[in-house]
Design a protein around this nucleic acid. Structure first.
Lengths: 157, 157
DNA sequence: GTCTTAAACGTTATATCATAACATACGATA
DNA sequence: TATCGTATGTTATGATATAACGTTTAAGAC
């Protein structure tokens, strides 16, 4: 299972607060709440799932509210978007502007985010060779995690 | 500019026909036409663009027709989907089941597909370390191509 | 040839994801 | 406290994708 120590949430929120201060930006209640929800989830979640949760809490936001919060968090590097799934996930690597590399189990959706520095180097080199300059990259790896691989072997050996 | 020799289209279509025969599958008129349109386009295009073009030709297809053709072509490895852009693009690397690595210029949308074998190796290794087994991967690199980089330097040096 | 069957396609409706446009509220600062 | 930029609320709509079900088509069995 994913380990998520009880202090992870407060650590990430504190980091976000601090970064926003440093950048003269505001971590408003909506933005903070969306980040909080993303950290608490074990798996990537969709914008509309977040919207539903906000509605259950008594807020009555419309889609743009959530998307604006997500856009802000994405810009600041606090979260990532998994484009193949239209899902969003909190970034677990504080302090480093990095390229997200995501291992996603296609069965149980368990997701691991890696820093992938060597992937970045490889891609930068490839881009250079083709006269492109790398700005950023999305690497999503469709996988089976160990338990799911065993499970599927059991089902159809 | 992209080079696309006049025989590329027929080469790709011939390859697709041949592979379908070998796999006992049918490259039906819709599938063939969609593949043809994707090859002819210089840039990745959306499902609804393809739909519009079919309508202009006199067909009256609904969205499922196009999506079914795209799904078939994706499954057979004849095309790729760029998830960050909800776009589809013909595969230019015949004969090899490979991991697509896409360099996409964020200004002009010029797109280059690379085979990226060394990327695959790096990712396989990363996955193994985390007890995931790689099934397939999407690598989209947001770039500036040389002309666009020069252009943007001219605009805001 | 014609019967059977699975695959492909047509069609309607709807689900899902995302943003445009404009009005209102808020917060920093002069 | 007046001002102005930023953030949010609100309504509507655009863009992407699929469910469900009926009909057609192609390929092999007889």
């Amino acid at each position: 299972m994913d380990k998520q120590p009880s202090n992870t949430l407060s650590r990430i929120l504190a980091y976000a607060e601090q970064e926003c201060q440093a950048r003269s930006l505001r971590l408003t209640p909506v933005r903070r709440r969306v980040l909080e929800m993303l950290v608490k989830h074990k798996h990537p979640v969709s914008a509309y799932q977040l919207l539903d949760e906000l509605v259950e809490e008594g807020h009555k936001p419309a889609p743009p509210t959530v998307y604006r919060a997500l856009d802000f968090l994405l810009e600041q590097g606090f979260i990532h978007r998994l484009a193949t799934q239209n899902n969003y996930v909190a970034c677990m690597h504080l302090g480093a502007r990095h390229m997200g590399v995501f291992l996603v189990c296609k069965r149980c959706k368990k997701t691991v985010e890696l820093l992938g520095e060597n992937v970045r180097d490889t891609l930068t080199e490839l881009a250079d060779k083709n006269q492109f300059s790398l700005e950023e990259a999305l690497v999503e790896v469709n996988c089976l995690c160990l338990p799911c691989r065993r499970q599927s072997e059991r089902e159809q050996p």
